[in-house]
Design a protein around this nucleic acid. Structure first.
Length: 299
DNA sequence: TAGGCCATCTGGTCCT
DNA sequence: AGGACCAGATGGCCTA
């Protein structure tokens, strides 16, 4: 008979929530309450079995019992079923944890890292899908797309906070490219957006610490070596193309996009995209590398 | 406080 | 038979 040494008071009070330690989950922490229904079922079957005089052996030997067609369980069988259920729960938990860990890697690949809350699962998948789609479209077109079209593609189906996050990463106002309910999106600029000062306006810096980020829109993924803070698989999983040129607006002086009403709806997003001095430092280093690598592309 | 997000449990289905 | 996968149900946490 399995016992629950320490049934947690709530699910979320489990020490394994949001923890890699879940892989080491011990059966004794399995939530007791939901198992009760299963136990009730099994026990009621067990009671019925006793009333019928324990006919499990007959059934297991292939002798069909007349009357009730309900399956009967002995105590031993109940325990086996219960154990299998608990083991299945553990496997399911581990399966979901591995799924979540892969999602975490995906989050890092798209690198749309908000300051306060991580991307939701659904938005991570949507953003990755849109990302691939947008890059594919760009490839098929064969030229630099205009920024707003690209961002509109990226933001299709994303939640408002994530849309704002993308906008924040690109220093745009989300309202400038998100479709109004029942209406079309209205781009701020009908054509392509180029940095007013050209690629030369890109910040300079050393190339020793390139950073792949969503804000910079797929850093030197094809060419760079994994940065020290990259997830183990991020390099291999990174999108294989670099379209930096279209996102050079990120390097504008802050006053520039303020004058263009490129504000952020949520200040937290803005903080995440520009208030972090380390992030700014990384970006300035990274853009120089990106420009060097992308010269052939721009030509 | 409502709604979104999440972890977990559970039973069903499919596959090996 | 047992494992993987899936979707529904449930309840907790967090944010607007």
């Amino acid at each position: 008979m399995l016992t629950f040494d320490e049934p947690p008071s709530t699910q979320t009070s489990s020490p394994f929530r949001n923890s890699w330690a879940t892989n080491q989950l011990n059966v004794k922490y399995v939530k007791a309450e939901p198992c009760r229904a299963l136990e009730d079922t099994l026990e009621s079957r067990g009671e019925e079995e006793e009333r019928h005089g324990g006919e499990e052996d007959e059934e297991e030997q292939g002798v069909r019992r007349r009357g009730s067609h309900k399956k009967k369980f002995s105590q031993g069988r109940m325990d086996r079923v219960r154990l299998r259920r608990i083991e299945a729960n553990t496997r399911e938990r581990n399966r979901m944890h591995s799924l979540n860990s892969e999602l975490d890697i995906l989050r890092k690949v798209v690198r749309a890292t908000p300051t306060r809350r991580k991307l939701s699962k659904i938005d991570t998948l949507r953003l990755a899908k849109n990302y691939i789609w947008a890059l594919s479209e760009t490839l098929s077109i064969g030229k630099r797309p205009d920024l707003l079209t690209f961002v509109q593609t990226l933001c299709k189906g994303l939640s408002q906070p994530t849309t704002n996050l993308v906008a924040g990463c690109l220093q745009l106002n989300a309202r400038s490219f998100v479709s109004e309910p029942g209406g079309e999106a209205f781009p701020l600029y009908p054509g392509s957006y180029n940095h007013p000062r050209g690629p030369e306006a890109v910040g300079s810096g050393s190339a020793d610490r390139p950073s792949r980020s969503f804000g910079s829109f797929c850093g030197p993924a094809l060419y760079d070596s994994p940065s020290p803070d990259s997830p183990p698989d991020a390099g291999a999983l990174s999108p294989p193309m670099n379209f930096n040129g279209i996102f050079s607006l990120k390097h504008e002086e802050p006053g520039d996009y303020r004058s263009c009403h490129y504000g952020l709806r949520y200040s937290s997003v803005g903080q995440g995209s520009s208030a972090d001095p380390y992030d700014i430092h990384l970006r300035s280093q990274f853009y120089q590398v990106q420009e060097d690598l992308n010269k052939p592309f721009h030509n």
